[in-house]
């Protein structure tokens, strides 16, 4: 099934001060530098409820995050909206942002998650590890090409796991 791809949002999230946790914002920065038409790029520490309003203004949203134990160098798959309950967390997960966008703003956006495999998360102030940096480079290359071709297919659950 071909998806309407006029407006695409990419949100890279994570804390750049926590080593590989900064993979999401690092990817956002690299993609923004490519200045691809029709693509809006955001970076943040975490996802929050107001991201749902932004998602609702787009046809496709890609959430880019560091992954603790996902595939190497990265995984990329479609995302289903998920309802939730949580204990006093100020942040929300990608699937919950999609659910909020649907519920509050009648969003029809299709969601994807890009999980870039990281390894070091505990050391405050450290840069992205060499191993994770190699994964990041491959993810930037893959997403950059996908955003240019805009060849999204919702029926394909796992888009890439190289």
């Amino acid at each position: 099934m071909t998806i309407k791809t006029e407006k695409i949002l990419l949100i890279g999230f994570g804390n750049p001060a926590r080593a590989d946790d900064g993979l999401g914002p690092a990817l956002a920065e690299a993609i923004e530098a490519k200045n691809i038409a029709g693509v809006t790029v955001e970076a943040d520490y975490q996802l929050t409820v107001e991201d749902s309003a932004r998602v609702a203004e787009h046809d496709i949203v890609i959430f880019a995050d560091a992954s603790i134990n996902g595939p190497e160098p990265f995984g990329f798959e479609s995302l289903e909206a998920k309802e939730y309950d949580s204990f006093s967390s100020h942040s929300v997960e990608p699937a919950q942002v999609l659910a909020l966008a649907e519920n509050l703003f009648n969003s029809k956006a299709t969601g994807y998650i890009l999980g870039i495999r990281g390894y070091e998360f505990d050391d405050f102030g450290s840069p992205i590890s060499e191993k994770a940096k190699a994964n990041l480079d491959k993810a930037v290359d893959f997403i950059g090409k996908l955003l240019k071709t805009k060849n999204f297919d919702k029926s394909q659950k796992t888009i890439a796991c190289l």
């Binding site: 520490y45 992954s67 603790i68 798959e77």
Partner: peptide, 12 residues
């Protein structure tokens, strides 16, 4: 094959 991506939920 559907891969499981477990994102890092951070901050708190």
């Amino acid at each position: 094959k559907r891969v499981i991506i477990e994102p890092v939920t951070r901050v708190e």
